[in-house]
Amino acid sequence: MTKRVGARRSTVALKALMAVSGLIMVGYLLLHMYGNLKVFSGQVAFDEYSHHLRTIGEPLLPESGLLWIIRVVLLAAIIAHVYSAVVLTVRDRKATRTGSGPRYKSKQNKRGFQRSYASFTLRWGGVIIFLFIIFHLLNLTTNDIAPGGASASPYERVLNTFGEWYMVLVYTIALLAVGFHLRHGVWAAGMTLGANTSVKARRNLNVLAYALSGIITIGFLIPPYAILFGWVG
C-alpha cells in the first residue's frame, strides 16, 4: 500500500500532466520544425526568422519577450513531464517488484502478447531525448559545442554542425528516439485525456500518432541531410 493522496494527485492526474506537457512540447516541436525548414530559404530568411522570434510582440513585450515566454513554458513542461515520468516509473517498479530477480522467472514470451517496441522504449527513449536536448542547447543555442566552428549566425551554426557526418548521426539517433516516443506518446496522450472511447476514435488517434511522429522525424531530418549532402548553402 502507498500513502493515500487523493484523486488530485493520483496516477491518473499525474499522467494527464505528463500528457499535457508532452503535447505542449509536441506543439513546440512542430513550430521548431517549421522554423528549421527555413534553412532552405537561405541565411537571411533563417536568421531573420530567428531574430523575428525575439522581436514578436514588441513593444508590448520586451526584447525576446515571447521567446522567454516560450522558454518558461517549455521549461515548465519539461520539468513537469520528467517529474511525473520519474514519480510514476518509481511507482511502477514498486508495483511489480517481487523481492529479487525478474518479475517472472520464465524466459518465454518476454514480449507478452503484443507489447510494441514503443512501449518498451518509452522511458529510455525519454532519457535519450532529455540528454539530447542538453547537448542540443550547448550545441546550437549557446554554441559551446561547435563542431565545424562557432558563429553568431544561427544559420551558420546549423550549417557548420551538419557539415560533420557524426553530428548528423547524433541528430538522427535523437530524432528516431523522438519518433518512437511520439508514436506511442501522442496516442497515449489521447487515451490519457479521454479521447479514445470508440473504435473510430481509436483508429483516428493511431493515424494521428503515426502522422505526427512521422512528420516530426522526417521534417527535422531533412535539413541535416540536405546540408550534409551539400544541397543547402
Binding site: 491518473v12 492526474a13 494527464a16 511502477d92 507489447r115 512501449s119 487515451m191 479521454g194 479514445n196 472511447t197
Partner: peptide
C-alpha cells in the same frame, strides 16, 4: 502501478475488456 497505455492488459484479459474503458476512466476523472 500507473497505466502507460501499453495495452497488454486487454490482450491478456480473458473477457476482452476493451482499452477504451481506460480512456473513459481518465475522462471521467479529469
Amino acid at each position: 502501478g500507473n497505466c502507460t497505455n501499453i495495452g497488454e492488459c486487454t490482450a491478456a484479459c480473458p473477457k476482452g475488456i476493451p482499452l477504451d474503458t481506460i480512456s473513459r476512466l481518465n475522462r471521467d476523472l479529469l
